[in-house]
Design a protein around this nucleic acid. Structure first.
Lengths: 224, 224
DNA sequence: CACATAGTTCGCTCCAAATCGAAGCATTAA
DNA sequence: TTAATGCTTCGATTTGGAGCGAACTATGTG
């Protein structure tokens, strides 16, 4: 029964280890060059070039030429969503690539998911904002309440924006198997966390490391 | 950065057209035999056998032996979730397998998603139940309200169950790109729809065809 | 028992795609 | 200008795995 969209093309693109590594690297939200992605995937530049063409043709990534560099990023949040969903399933079916180690624990606590905060802290933030009445679900749409808008203004976090992307979105965690906050607001909050110096990205990883004071300040600011 | 679970194994399993067709067929929620799945995928019995072994080893499907028949079904709702997510992405990136035709329209209106109702009607049902206050979201968990429990009891729809699966779950539609009701309640409601004779499955498709009276009765019963 | 059906295993062929060496553009630096 | 860097294209090789014919096992039926 050839119903619905063709899954297999997209899945096949993700199904190659090299391309999957590239996509995983792009989950950080940062745009990476072809060379960097080749290193991530552990393949030669020529091979990477071919793979990147495929991913671009399949509309999973987009390319921006800047001088002699080609910067790639995920084509949309939907792609990131599918990748996280696949990670969740892969984790559940026991296909963990690495045994749980110290690095894994750090990832579980706080990490970047595309462009917003995921992990223990991301889930706690989401739950806290729901409990405090800053977020609500209405007609199946996640949104800021009046109190939420007020709070964001008080913290100096921008909520307006020209982009047509939704302000609030839920995103499922592969480590927690619970939702955390994505969308434009999720991105703004993570930017705020960086700007306040509460946390920094760990070099060469998706982990986000909070300072002792930063963690406290973060929880205080968002009241959770 | 080899962080997180290994996506590519799972994706590669879904990435073969034959296996993808099998999985799509299993989205109906019905357990199918190896032979039926071979026909779905358009391959010989031997090839199908090999594919089914792979999918089973990858924990995407589970097998139940009954006499000389082997019945297969999706291993978990998470698998169904990933498949729907992939369908959503594939539809968005324009990888539609078939041009929109009469069959497509029927699918868009009402279809089976794993074991519950999806499509226009599924989304409308979900929205209606939220609007009527039968469903609510609390601490990021979708659930029945007191009014909802009362309504289900009045309609004779069972809500208790020994299974540990959640009673209510949201599930994203690939055609509507909105949520509809999944989980044990979603299944119970679809069972009720069949039992009342309001609708029937279309042979050899995931479409659900409502009778004129059935459609009206369905909307009346759930007040949307 | 023989016979039919459902599914698997074995052996083989074949092809798509992953890979890289070498060469070719394009951009920036000296 | 020449040289260096980043990326792509071309050409050739290799291989994983998808596919099927044939034979085998297991279950059910007459």
């Amino acid at each position: 029964m050839k119903d619905g969209p063709d899954i297999s093309r997209v899945a096949a693109l993700i199904g190659d280890p090299g391309r999957a590594n590239m996509l995983a690297a792009l989950m950080s939200g940062k745009a990476l060059t072809a060379g960097e992605l080749a290193a991530e995937a552990g393949v030669s530049a020529q091979t990477a070039s071919a793979h990147l063409q495929g991913l671009e043709a399949g509309k999973l990534i987009s390319r921006a030429r800047q001088g002699r560099h080609h910067y790639f990023k995920l084509a949309s949040d939907d792609v990131a969503g599918v990748l996280e969903a696949l990670m969740g399933l892969a984790a559940k079916t026991g296909q963990l690539r690495t045994r749980t180690g110290p690095r894994d624990a750090e990832l579980r606590l706080a990490r970047v998911c595309y462009n917003h905060l995921a992990g223990d802290l991301g889930v706690a933030l989401f739950d806290g904002m729901m409990a405090r009445g800053f977020l609500h679900v209405k007609a199946d749409q996640l949104g800021l309440t009046a109190a939420g808008y007020k709070k964001m203004a008080a913290l100096g976090i921008p909520v307006e924006g020209k982009s047509r992307a939704p302000l609030c979105r839920e995103c499922l965690d592969w480590s927690e198997r619970r939702s955390h906050l994505a969308g434009r607001l999720g991105r703004s909050i993570l930017d705020h966390v960086y700007a306040q110096g509460w946390a920094k990205r760990v070099e060469g990883s998706r982990a986000v490391r909070f300072t002792g004071l930063g963690g406290t300040a973060f929880r205080t600011a968002f009241e959770f």
